[in-house]
Design a protein around this nucleic acid. Structure first.
Lengths: 183, 183
DNA sequence: ACCTGAACACCGTTCAAGT
DNA sequence: ACCTGAACACCGTTCAAGT
């Protein structure tokens, strides 16, 4: 039974979504593929790289057509798409945020954010700051929301999630700050 | 040789700062204290709780007198204090941010942020959103900065850290958004 | 080229037994 | 009350050997 790198990533996604990040071990993944743990290292150099590939796949699967024209609407669109992509998989926010922190993976949303902000007639210096600001907001908010959701579904009723409304309000705060600096 | 919970936390801080989070294991910590791993469980229920206590201690040690009067200056002061506290220990941002995500520890900075924002004559509904927004910014930015710093000192020259200027610009963006909503 | 089998050097946590 | 010793059920990764 031959299998390839893509099969490994796909299975990893499935294990992640069904059992969570703490259960996504190399040994567990190997067992799921009916293979010895050592066999995985022919398709992936190590676990860190595997997780970065999983993060990229989560983001990729969440892609949808973008139709906003105004730069600020595009920012909201990109951030919301990224949030929804991460929420679609168990522990998705943690996996994607961690990969981003270590500079692994494609980081394609950052590029799209940067482009949208550059269209906003912003001082070039501000584009980088704003890009990072939005990414931190998306990762932080989504991570917290997903953790709360999973804690709630596990019985522990913590704080209310906040949810989509809070998320957009948070984005809007930063957008207001940017609009004030725009012609 | 008797020792107490406080000694365990202190030692954990020392191991964290010298060898990093990945080396802060229960077994390593026990060895450092000259004791069997199982002995730690008389002072701390599990590793997660230990790490939350370490996070609290990092924040506590970073406390300094606050003198700002205006609500927006107080927000900057609180955020900067938290950032500096986390930067003072290796992997401090990751430890503190993780504890916060899981709702563990004291979360005293959140309370102080909330108080400062409430003084800002903000619509009550916005206070919570803004509090979370600032915390996400502080954790995200500091985590990224610290990771970059440690990667740089380990030889890998990645992206420039951004540093304090970027951090304050990011806060200012949100503050502008809030000031626009204030009387 | 791809995989197995076995090993290395670890983990967090529990628990009977000692003092 | 506090600690030891030993065990349980795991980890990620490497590497000689097989096909």
């Amino acid at each position: 039974m031959r299998y390839h790198r893509g099969d490994v990533i796909d299975r990893a996604l499935a294990v992640l979504d069904e059992y969570g990040l703490e259960s996504l071990t190399m040994r567990r993944l190997a067992a799921e593929l009916g293979v010895q743990p050592s066999a995985l290292y022919h398709h992936v150099p190590n676990k860190q790289t595997l997780l970065a590939a999983v993060a990229d796949e989560i983001v990729r699967r969440g892609r949808r057509p973008h139709r906003a024209r105004r730069w600020d609407a595009r920012v909201v669109e990109i951030c919301t798409e990224l949030r929804d992509a991460m929420l679609a998989y168990r522990d998705g926010a943690e996996v994607v945020a961690t990969a981003h922190t270590f500079g692994l993976g494609e980081d394609e949303p950052a590029g799209r954010l940067r482009a949208a902000l550059a269209d906003g007639a912003l001082p070039a210096e501000l584009v980088d700051v704003a890009t990072r600001t939005f990414l931190h907001l998306v990762f932080g908010h989504t991570n917290e929301e997903q953790t709360a959701l999973q804690a709630a579904s596990a019985g522990a009723i913590d704080r209310e999630p906040g949810g989509h409304a809070d998320f957009e309000q948070s984005l809007d705060l930063v957008l207001d700050g940017l609009r004030a600096r725009t012609g």
